[in-house]
């Protein structure tokens, strides 16, 4: 243990500096792309979860003679509870989206990454080229997709809570002016929701930077894989790990501080 950390060992890392530099770029790109894919996916998921697709209610209204009982009781009043009421309110799109979100949130990232890389992309053959000369496309892309699919589930919940945090009076005012549901969402609710959730989205980005470290297990050459390479070649662990610690910290700490600053400024803006 006397040689636990040695200054001289840091010199051994110098030949691998380029590896760390490339790893840094890979980590940043991987996280950025993952959050972008995640955001797009989250928009779709949130739209599905908040959609108004009620096939049974549609049946009841289109064929009231046969299916009217789904909406109205025999006394002619609207149903407000019970099995038929819940069947009328059943939304298959929301169900699918909610199932996806819950499965992703209840399983480890590494399992998801392995399923995408060893499972899905064993069926789809990717070209084995490189980007910028050092990003291995056939490992990078599955990594991005897996992380994107993961963060999509979390961002979906963030977007949903952002939308729900917008005062109901906003929707009522818009609808009372004659805007339809999607116009109300697009022009009134979503812009306000986005402002509310920007800090949470940035936080998700920081979380993805950290989580992206596990993609070295499928051979993505990020910061963590540079650590591994040095360990294998120079037989030192702690020193490259400290370098990685520094790099991750330099990425995440300013990012989360920036988020905090943004949050503070926006709160001040609200009270103006």
């Amino acid at each position: 243990m006397e040689h636990f950390i040695q200054v001289s060992n840091f010199e051994k890392i110098i030949p691998y500096a380029k590896l760390f530099g490339e790893g840094f770029v890979v980590t940043v790109l991987l996280s950025l792309l993952a959050v972008m894919i995640g955001f797009a996916l989250a928009l779709v998921l949130a739209t599905l979860r908040m959609s108004h697709c009620y096939p049974f209610l549609w049946l009841a209204r289109t064929f009231p003679r046969f299916f009217g009982f789904l909406e109205y009781t025999s006394k002619g009043t609207k149903r407000e509870s019970g099995f038929w009421y819940r069947l009328g309110r059943f939304n298959p799109l929301a169900f699918i989206a909610a199932t996806y979100v819950e499965i992703v949130r209840s399983t480890p990232v590494i399992v998801q990454i392995f399923i995408i890389y060893h499972g899905v992309f064993s069926l789809i053959k990717l070209p084995t080229g490189t980007l910028f000369g050092f990003i291995k496309f056939h490992r990078f892309l599955p990594g991005v997709i897996a992380l994107g699919m993961n963060s999509g589930a979390y961002l979906c919940e963030i977007i949903r809570s952002g939308i729900q945090s917008v005062d109901r009076g906003q929707t009522e005012a818009a609808r009372s002016l004659g805007l339809n549901r999607s116009q109300t969402f697009r022009y009134v609710v979503f812009p306000q929701a986005l402002k509310n959730i920007l800090p949470a989205i940035a936080n998700e980005f920081v979380a993805i930077i950290k989580e992206s470290a596990v993609t070295y297990t499928i051979g993505v050459q990020d910061i963590m894989s540079a650590v591994n390479a040095v360990r294998g070649a120079a037989f030192i662990v702690m020193e490259p790990l400290l370098v990685a610690t520094g790099l991750y910290f330099c990425l995440c700490f300013p990012a989360s501080k920036g988020v905090a600053y943004l949050e503070k400024r926006m709160r001040r803006g609200d009270q103006r």
Binding site: D167, Q170, E172, L177, G178, N180, P191, Q192
Partner: peptide, 20 residues
């Protein structure tokens, strides 16, 4: 229903102006 809502203006206790 949107067509009919256009023809009925509504004013709320808490104004509900769009803040953005």
């Amino acid at each position: 229903i949107d067509h009919y809502r256009q023809r009925m203006g509504m004013v709320f206790q808490h104004f509900n102006l769009f803040p953005h």
